[in-house]
Amino acid sequence: MAEALNLAIIVVALLALFFLLKGRPKAPPLPVRPDAGSYTPVPEGAPVLHWADGGAQFDVEVLGESRYRDTIRRLAGEHGDGKADARHTALLLPDDANPYEDKAVAVFVSGEMVGYLAPKEALALRLRLARQEIAGQLTSCDAAIRGGNLWEGKRLAYAVLLDLDLKG
């Protein structure tokens, strides 16, 4: 008799658990974001300011370069087996319409997108723009495309580095 009672309790508990889990509200679907390649901002007009600290530190790295690796490889130019060190001017575009990051800053080299500033650096640049009373406007700085040397028969990745002092 005790075994039947224990078995009945187990069956009732399992049924209750089943209906509890089955009947719980469904989570709302995740918002659908555009495909990775469908959104690219477009810089318009001339830069209102060229950031120049004269030190050529190139210590701000652009993120997301893997999406633009073919463009960056072309911009690096011919450099044989050694590493590239191609100099360019970069355009910095505060990207308020970015669907992924609300304070994004897009980076363009020779009119082509090469990535974004890291969120912390984008915020620092936006604060500097606001202090200069040019918030949201297109600016420029010097850029270097480095890397891409051959190692064990394979070409290493490139990095886009900006000469941009965001501490001041």
Rank of each mutant, 00 (worst) to 15 (best):
M1V: 11
A2I: 13
A2W: 05
E3C: 09
A4L: 15
A4K: 11
L7E: 12
V11A: 13
V11N: 05
V12L: 15
V12W: 10
V12K: 11
A13P: 00
F18N: 08
L20K: 12
L21W: 12
L21R: 15
L21Y: 13
K22E: 07
K22N: 10
G23Y: 04
G23L: 06
P29I: 05
P31F: 06
P31G: 09
V32S: 10
V32Q: 12
Y39P: 07
Y39R: 05
T40W: 00
V42P: 00
V42H: 11
P43Q: 07
G45F: 03
G45C: 04
G45L: 03
A52M: 08
D53K: 00
A56T: 03
Q57I: 00
Q57E: 09
Q57T: 10
D59Y: 08
V60C: 11
V62P: 00
L63W: 02
G64W: 04
S66K: 10
R67W: 01
R67E: 05
D70A: 10
D70T: 05
I72W: 04
R74P: 00
R74N: 08
L75P: 07
A76G: 02
A76P: 01
G77A: 06
G77C: 07
G80V: 00
G80S: 05
R87M: 09
T89Y: 00
L92R: 04
L93P: 08
D96F: 14
P99W: 06
P99N: 07
E101M: 11
K103R: 15
V105H: 06
V109I: 15
G111I: 00
G111P: 01
E112A: 11
V114W: 07
G115H: 02
A118W: 04
P119W: 03
K120M: 11
K120D: 13
K120V: 13
E121P: 01
E121G: 02
E121V: 03
A122T: 05
A124E: 10
L125Y: 03
L127I: 10
R128A: 14
R128F: 03
R128S: 11
L129A: 08
R131H: 13
E133I: 11
I134S: 08
A135W: 08
A135L: 12
G136L: 07
D142W: 02
A144E: 08
A144R: 15
A144I: 08
I145T: 05
G147S: 08
G148H: 00
N149D: 14
L150K: 14
W151A: 15
G153C: 04
K154C: 09
K154W: 11
Y158S: 06
L162N: 00
D163V: 01
D163A: 14
L164G: 04
